[in-house]
């Protein structure tokens, strides 16, 4: 997982004297640019090209459709629930796992990782087996007039599942690396647990947290497979943006389909830019922590 790979700091300058001959270097760079062009840019470009095929007017008109607007609203709602839940969970998990040792820790981490490797279709299927009319809780939910599957809660649950590891897996390695010395110092100086967390831990992991949130959000808004299984595909009601893309595509409304797709592609681009910015700031912050923070932080912390 790109996230799980962790630590993407800004690349250091290449070491001198240790490189390939110039022609080889140029060849490799050219090859990379070709890969980036063919594999990465071309699909992206085709989305926008198809979306604008009918001209800018038709493109913009796609967003005035009430169903498209409903899909955008639903996607935002789902992300607005799934992301905070995952932030809360990620912070708890990282605190418990990184700052303490207990038996079964590795197992817990593997379980948190599991949604990375589970096919989105299987995750959707799982929720149908649990909350569907024939599922384990199906009769109970029906008796209490609650609907999970084919309604917003099912979509939210499936989204939480697929985005489950993102925040936690960004935070755990970093917080493990940082150890507990700073927190312990704060505690001995009289800070409460909550203060310690807010004033010491959170600032130290804020970039990783933000990074996790960005990735989590991108996936939450873009998930197709799992959501497709648990959504009833009701236009204007349970269709998220990726599902709306499919619906429009199947209605021969290609301009509108690619228009909604282009919105998602723009989200991806914004995500990439935000990520790059966060990485740079995080790199700068990491350099700072080792020098200044150690000296200044304790003084600040004495105040309360």
């Amino acid at each position: 997982m790109a996230g799980a790979g962790g630590g993407h700091r800004a690349a250091p300058r290449p070491r001198s004297g240790m490189s390939e001959p110039a022609p080889v270097r140029r060849l490799l760079i050219a090859a990379t640019l070709v890969v980036a062009g063919c594999v990465l840019v071309l699909p992206l470009a085709s989305v926008f090209a198809e979306a604008l095929r009918g001209g800018l007017g038709a493109y913009l008109a796609s967003f005035r459709d009430p169903e498209a607007l409903a899909a955008i609203r639903l996607t935002l709602l789902v992300a607005a629930i799934a992301v905070p839940v995952n932030v809360l969970f990620g912070l708890s998990a990282a605190w418990a796992i990184a700052k303490f040792s207990f038996p079964g820790k590795r197992l817990l981490i593997t379980l948190i990782d599991l949604p990375y490797a589970v096919s989105p279709v299987v995750s959707g299927l799982v929720y149908i087996m649990i909350y569907g009319a024939n599922g384990v809780f199906g009769p109970w939910l029906a008796a209490h007039d609650l609907q999970v599957i084919f309604a917003v809660p099912g979509i939210v649950l499936a989204t939480i599942f697929v985005t489950f590891p993102f925040v936690a897996r960004e935070l755990i390695p970093l917080m493990e690396e940082q150890g507990t010395e700073q927190e312990q110092a704060a505690m001995t100086l009289g800070a409460s647990g909550w203060q310690t967390f807010r004033r010491v831990t959170l600032p130290n992991v804020r970039w990783a947290l933000l990074y996790g949130v960005i990735l989590c959000n991108a996936r939450a808004m873009g998930e197709f497979g799992a959501v497709s299984v648990v959504s009833g595909h009701i236009r204007g009601k349970t269709a998220t943006m990726p599902l709306q893309v499919e619906i429009l595509y199947n209605e021969y409304n290609h301009v509108a389909a690619f228009a909604v797709a282009s919105l998602l592609a723009m989200l991806a681009l914004v995500t990439l830019v935000a990520k790059a910015v966060v990485e740079r700031r995080a790199g700068a912050a990491a350099a700072q922590i080792t020098t200044t923070e150690v000296e200044t932080e304790p003084q600040r912390r004495e105040a309360p």
Binding site: I128, G132, A133, N134, G135, G138, A142, Q147, I149, F150, G232, H233, I234, R235, G236, K237, I247, N250
Partner: peptide, 20 residues
């Protein structure tokens, strides 16, 4: 009237699983 469309098998399956 809200609409949901898809392959007939998939649609029937959704109703069986609780699509209202």
């Amino acid at each position: 009237v809200h609409q949901s469309h898809g392959g007939a098998g998939k649609q029937a399956r959704a109703v069986i699983d609780g699509l209202q």
